[in-house]
Design a binder for these strands. Structure first.
Lengths: 158, 158
DNA sequence: TACCTTCGTTAGTGCCACGAACGTTTATGG
DNA sequence: CCATAAACGTTCGTGGCACTAACGAAGGTA
């Protein structure tokens, strides 16, 4: 039996944005499958890491650290709070804010999820050599860094 | 004013699946913005190209060529049909199927959209050298090719 | 014949990125 | 000091995308 040829026209296959979108779907499924086994989503992990690596913060600050919209942050924190992974208490020095704190439970959960995520990355990058994996992350870093939502004219030299 | 440092923890920034997802968001916005100006989405373009490059086909065949789910294909074809870009007629030799045919209007539209898409790719890949652009597409091709939904054991050598 | 598959279609789910608006609180500047 | 602007948490809603379930109609196969 032949290797099941790809019926996608070459013109479509060559479009970088399509390639990226395809890779994103694969990567997302790999990660989500594993996290779902723990009842988690990638946002939970992102928030836990943001707290573990940069310390307690307000919800808005967590939004900036993780890239999650502050609208969507609410539900994520609710869920993490329900699982006793974080505490959410009003900030005494700025009563607009909540201070989000990582609990010991949260730290343990983060470590479990970290292992699952690492696993997913390994499977995702399996077809690439170590050198190629480095290339890919470097290229993608340059790409995303360049298109950061810092309006043209503000921040890094145009 | 300093270049607005990225508040994202290094641990998160280094996760390949996150990098890919971020690149996908950027790429998608770049493409969608341009297509929206013509009232189109990327799926419309994918279908038009699939027809132009590989000829008339059934809806199921178009699904395979483009990666669009056959459930979602219905709406896309409705919209393309409303815009007179395609014709959808029952297949006389297999009455389960519809034969989708590209019209002259559709071909012109495809060419317009093609220019917009090419534009978006240029802007997307702007921060990379030509050599790097080639590397990136090669690496992503290997990646997505390897994770093609041909179950382990069927199709290409394990 | 009976069975299995394919096809087009409808309806619905879940995740994600994003915007609008509102009340509350803090910061800013005339 | 007061008016105005900004930031914060929150709710609600939108649109796109990937994906599933189920259906009747039609075709292939045993």
């Amino acid at each position: 039996m032949t290797p099941t040829p790809d019926p996608t026209p070459a013109r479509l296959r060559a479009i970088p944005s399509r390639l990226i979108a395809g890779a994103a779907v694969v990567a997302d499924r790999l990660v989500s499958e594993r996290l779902a086994a723990e009842g988690a989503r990638k946002w939970h992990f992102a928030v836990l890491v943001a707290l573990a690596d940069a310390g307690a913060a307000s919800q808005a600050e967590l939004s900036r650290r993780t890239g999650i919209y502050r609208s969507d942050m609410v539900a994520v924190l609710n869920e993490l709070s329900d699982a006793s992974c974080i505490r959410r208490e009003p900030d005494p020095v700025d009563r607009r804010r909540n201070v989000i704190t990582l609990t010991a439970t949260g730290r343990r959960r983060m470590e479990r999820l970290d292992a699952l995520i690492a696993d997913a990355q390994r499977e995702l990058l399996a077809p690439l050599t170590a050198a190629q994996q480095g290339q890919l992350t470097r290229l993608l870093t340059v790409l995303t860094e360049h298109h950061r939502p810092s309006h043209p004219g503000r921040g890094e030299a145009h």
